[in-house]
Computed example of a mutant assay.
Amino acid sequence: MNTPRKLFLHAPGIHVGGGLTLLQALYSAADSCVDFEQLDTRAAHLIPPSSAERHLIRPSLFSRLAAEFRLQQRVAKGDVVLCFNGLVPLFRCQGEITVFLQNRLLISTARLHNYSLRARLRLTVERFLIKNLAHRVNKFIVQSPSMAEQTRAHLGPNANIVICPYIANSRRSAVVTDRERRFDFVYVASADPHKNHQALLRGWSQLAEQGIRPSLALTLSLDSPLAAQLSDLKERWGLNVSNLGPLTPTEVGSLYAQARALIYPSFTESLGLPLIEASRAGLPIIAAELDYVRDIVDPVETFDPHSPTSIARAVKRHLGIVSSPQAIFGPEVFLREVLQ
């Protein structure tokens, strides 16, 4: 008699952001078939109890290695391991390995100079591991066509890649009148460098210099350096920007109901959950002209995410503010300027 195959969920490091949202959505699905789970201890209170055998992993090297060893010892032939953290197990397992690749930085060669030294070291090691251990993986699951294309280019044509995006089942939102909307724009994102708040805030400063001050809601950690920088810019330019701090999924849904549009300047995303959430909430989207955006939504305006001027111009177009292009003169005017 054959022993029934088990599903092992391995999710160290998943405790904030889109990864946590997707993990919570997975647990919200009825009749979960997970038999064995390893979760980050920082997310334990955010994940509902289940019938699976649960182990908690602390954010330490020893705890992570112990979890990897436990996985190797417990997985039998025919079992399925779902690596929710996007990494391949360090120790070879007998079962079938499925990696849910939800961090585009892991398959990118882009420089990491904007990240802290600790983050650069971690991402460099993780990039090395996924590149060199990819042959152990039976299946990579990604969330968009552009992510699949980049993964195949990075890992080679033999990688088995499946596109299967998902988010939590949407709930019906209450009808909100335009008068009840507090913010012209909202950007739901952490303070990570690739989220590109710097260009966004420079664009908002350019608008303020022109006497245009649309309201903007951000969700930055209150103790982040970026939050302190925002306070300085608000004082200097009188920006109409509110930092609400990190929000729960329910609070994010309420925020969309208070906004008139989503702005999304991120340089890179594997999916971009706020794009889908805002679209389902009926918000117009002003976003970077990048593949990951076009994979999942049709923005009403786009911009060059590297250019604060382009961001400011897209905002003005959306607000219906007409800007005249630079006038072009003849050589006579140029000479007159020289001789004045």
Rank of each mutant, 00 (worst) to 15 (best):
G211P: 09
S215H: 05
S215V: 07
L218G: 04
L220H: 00
L220R: 00
S221C: 12
S221M: 14
S224T: 13
L226T: 09
A227F: 01
A227E: 03
A228E: 13
D232H: 07
K234D: 05
K234M: 14
R236E: 14
W237Y: 15
G238H: 06
G238C: 09
N243W: 03
L244W: 06
L247Y: 07
T248W: 09
P249T: 01
E251G: 08
G253W: 06
L255V: 05
L255G: 06
Y256H: 10
A257N: 13
A257D: 15
Q258A: 14
A259R: 04
R260M: 07
A261H: 04
A261N: 07
I263D: 03
I263W: 02
P265G: 07
T268F: 04
I276C: 10
E277T: 06
A278S: 08
A278Y: 02
S279T: 11
A281P: 00
A281S: 14
I285F: 04
D291W: 02
Y292I: 00
I296Q: 13
V297F: 10
F303K: 05
F303P: 03
F303G: 02
S307H: 04
S307L: 07
T309H: 13
I311A: 02
A312N: 07
K316I: 06
R317V: 09
H318N: 13
L319V: 07
S323M: 12
S324N: 13
A327M: 12
